[in-house]
Design a protein around this nucleic acid. Structure first.
Length: 514
RNA sequence: GUCCCGGUCGUCUAGUCCGGCCCAGGACCCCAGAUUUUCAUUCUGGUAACACGGGUUCGAAUCCCGUCCGGGAUACCA
C-alpha cells in the first residue's frame, strides 16, 4: 500500500501562466482528494531551468488561491514529504539514478543533441514508421564508455525500456488500454548536470510523496506507460492513473498557454469574473454535476465528484456560458457582498463613502445587480451617481424627440424641489437608504421612510404626468436621459431616489435649459 | 508515418457499463411571446443532435465490425 489515505497532487511547471485547462486539472485533483477524504498537494516541477520563472510560479499560486483550490502540502506549507520544489530534491534523483545504473535499468548515453536531432530528421525523411532514439549507447562496453569520458563527453542517463512487451493498464478515465513497449524508446532520465527530466523526477517524487492517484491531462498518457515501467524497476507500487481529456480552444486544438487569446486565470480575476463562477464553469468542462443543474457550490461538487465520471471527449471552452454563469452568481449575491467585491473596480467612488454612505452604495449596487455579469462592469455604470452625466447618443435622442419635453422637465424639477426627496450625495442620507431597499419590486409594501420612497415618487409622478396630459412613456424617457445620460439602467424612480433632490433638480433644469 | 483516445442539438452535457421507460432530457446561445418607464431580470414557448455504413436483436444512441472526421503522443519541455 502506498499510503493509508489517498494522496493526489497537482504538479505544474512554472513556465507560463495558469490557464483554464491547468486550473481544471488542479481542480479535479483537488476535488478527488476532498471527495476521497484524502490529501491534496502541490509540487512544483521547475526542472526546466531555461523556462521556469519565479513570476510564473507566483501566477500559478495566486491563480489557485483565487479559485479556492487550497493545498494541504506544498509551497508555503510544512508537509512531511517535502521539499515540494524539484530543484530542491536533486540528491534524491541522483541517488535513485545510481540505483538504476547499478541494476542495469539505466545507462549513460553520449549522443549529442545534434546527432539526436539529425537522427529524428532522417527517420522522418525516410517515412520511417517508428521515430525515436536508436539505442546506439544502449550496450556500450566499459571500455567504450571510458573512451567517451576521456574525450570529455558528458552522459545523459537513459532508461532501458524492455523490448516488445505489452503493458496493460487500467486508467480511471480510459479503462483498459494496452500499449506495446516497442512504441517507446529509451528515454532520458537525467541530464549530465544532474537535473532530472519530467518522467524521472515525476516518478521519484510520486514515490517519495506517497502519491496514490495521478490525475493529469491525456497528453501524459504515454508518459504514464514509461513511468509505470520505472515504478517497476524501482520495485515501487504504481499509483492509479486518470488521464483526463484536454480543454480545446475555439479551433478545436489543445489549449496552450502560448496560444494567443488564451487568458490566464488571473486575467479573469482582474477583469472582475467572480471566482466561484469560474470554478463552477470549468468544473463543467468534461464533467456533469447533475442532469438538470449547472450551478452548484464547491461543497456540492466535492460531494458529487468521482474522477471516473469525467468524460473521455475533449470539451470546447465557451466564453458565453462562462459569462452567463458569472451573472448567475452576481445575482445571487447579497448586495453588500457585491459592493465589497466590486470595490477594486470602483475607483471613482471616494473611499470614505464606503463608511459614510454604505447603505446608499449598497442600494446603488443592488439596482445594477440584474444588469451586470462581472464585477468590472459595475464601475462604469455608476458614474452618473457622482458626476452630472454627458448624455450619450441615445439619451440625446430621447431629449430632443418631443420639443415640449423641456417644459415637462422644468415643471417636474419644480415639483421635486418642493417635495421631500432624500438628499443628494455627498450629503448625509441617513433615514433614506437604511429604510428603503433597492431595487424596488412591484407589489412590494411601501417601506416606512421619512423621505419620499420610490413607490411614492412613482405615484406622484404618474399623477403629475396625467395632469400634464402626456403619455407616461414619452415623459419618462427624457427624464431618464437628463438624470443618467443614458437610456438604460434601473427603474426610473429608483434612480430618482438614489440621486436625491439637489442632483435631480439640477439635472432636470439643466436639460430643460438645453 | 506509427501508436493511443474520442465522436449525442452551434457549444457544455444527461442517457451508453446492465439494449426497450429516449420519435433523446437539461444548460448556454439564438428566435418568438408575456411582464414593464428603458435596459436587464423573470416567466412561457420554439428552432436544433444520437458522424456514416453494415451487422446482432422482436427491439440499438446504447452491443459488434468497418469507414470518415477530430484530438493527443512520438524532446537533453512538462
Amino acid at each position: 500500500m502506498i499510503h493509508p489515505t489517498p494522496r493526489l497532487r497537482f504538479a505544474p511547471s512554472p513556465t507560463g501562466s495558469l490557464h483554464l485547462g491547468g486550473a481544471r486539472t488542479a481542480m479535479y485533483n483537488w476535488a478527488a482528494a476532498r471527495a476521497l477524504g484524502g490529501t491534496f498537494l502541490l509540487r512544483i516541477e521547475d526542472t526546466d531551468q531555461a523556462r521556469s520563472t519565479d513570476a510564473s510560479l507566483q501566477v500559478i499560486l495566486d491563480g489557485l488561491r483565487w479559485l479556492g483550490i487550497d493545498w494541504d502540502e506544498g509551497p508555503g506549507t510544512a508537509g512531511q514529504y517535502g521539499p515540494y520544489f524539484q530543484m530542491q530534491r536533486l540528491e534524491l534523483y541522483r541517488a535513485t539514478a545510481d540505483r538504476l545504473l547499478a541494476s542495469g535499468h539505466a545507462y549513460p548515453c553520449y549522443c549529442t543533441p545534434e546527432r539526436l536531432e539529425q537522427l529524428r530528421e532522417q527517420q522522418k525523411a525516410a517515412k520511417s514508421s517508428w521515430i525515436g532514439y536508436d539505442g546506439r549507447c544502449r550496450d556500450l562496453t566499459a571500455a567504450q564508455r571510458a573512451a567517451h569520458e576521456a574525450q570529455g563527453l558528458r552522459a545523459n542517463l537513459r532508461f532501458r525500456m524492455p523490448e516488445a512487451r505489452v503493458i496493460a493498464v487500467h486508467d480511471l478515465i480510459r479503462g483498459h488500454v494496452e500499449v506495446n513497449t516497442k512504441e517507446l524508446d529509451d528515454w532520458v532520465m537525467l541530464r549530465p548536470d544532474g537535473v532530472p527530466l519530467y518522467n524521472f523526477a515525476c516518478v521519484v517524487d510520486d514515490i517519495g510523496m506517497r502519491i496514490t492517484h495521478v490525475v493529469r491531462g491525456e497528453e501524459h498518457f504515454l508518459n504514464g506507460i514509461k513511468q509505470r515501467l520505472l515504478f517497476e524497476a524501482l520495485d515501487a507500487e504504481c499509483p492509479v492513473y486518470a488521464h483526463i481529456p484536454l480543454i480545446l480552444n475555439q479551433k478545436g486544438g489543445k489549449l496552450s498557454k502560448r496560444d494567443p487569446g488564451v487568458k490566464s486565470v488571473l486575467e479573469y480575476r482582474d477583469e472582475g469574473f467572480p471566482a466561484e463562477a469560474v470554478f463552477n464553469y470549468i468544473a463543467l468542462l468534461g464533467w456533469g454535476f447533475a442532469a438538470d443543474r449547472d450551478v452548484f457550490t464547491r461543497d456540492e461538487m466535492v460531494a458529487a465528484f468521482r474522477i471516473e465520471n469525467v468524460g473521455k471527449a475533449g470539451a470546447k471552452f465557451d466564453p458565453e456560458k462562462l459569462q452567463w454563469m458569472c451573472g448567475e452568481y452576481i445575482r445571487r449575491m447579497p448586495p453588500a457582498q457585491l459592493l465589497d467585491r466590486a470595490r477594486p473596480w470602483l475607483p471613482h467612488v471616494p473611499a470614505a463613502a464606503f463608511t459614510s454612505h454604505r447603505a446608499w452604495l449598497e442600494n446603488a449596487a443592488a439596482s445594477y445587480q440584474e444588469r451586470v455579469q462581472l464585477f468590472g462592469e459595475l464601475g462604469p455604470k455608476l458614474g452618473w451617481l457622482f458626476a452630472d452625466p454627458v448624455p450619450d447618443e441615445a439619451a440625446r435622442k430621447n431629449l430632443s424627440k418631443d420639443p415640449a419635453s423641456r417644459q415637462w422637465l422644468a415643471a417636474w424639477a419644480d415639483v421635486l424641489a418642493a417635495g421631500d426627496l432624500p438628499p443628494s450625495w455627498p450629503h448625509d442620507r441617513a433615514g433614506a437608504d437604511d429604510h428603503v431597499k433597492l431595487p424596488s419590486k412591484k407589489d412590494q409594501p411601501e417601506p416606512a421612510c421619512r423621505f419620499a420612497t420610490p413607490q411614492r415618487i412613482e405615484a406622484e409622478c404618474r399623477a403629475f404626468v396625467e395632469r400634464l396630459g402626456v403619455k407616461f412613456g414619452s415623459f419618462v424617457h427624457p427624464v431618464r436621459a437628463a438624470l443618467t445620460g443614458t437610456d438604460k439602467g434601473p427603474g426610473l424612480f429608483d434612480v430618482v431616489f438614489l440621486l436625491g433632490k439637489d442632483a435631480c433638480v439640477r439635472r432636470l433644469r439643466a436639460a430643460a435649459a438645453g
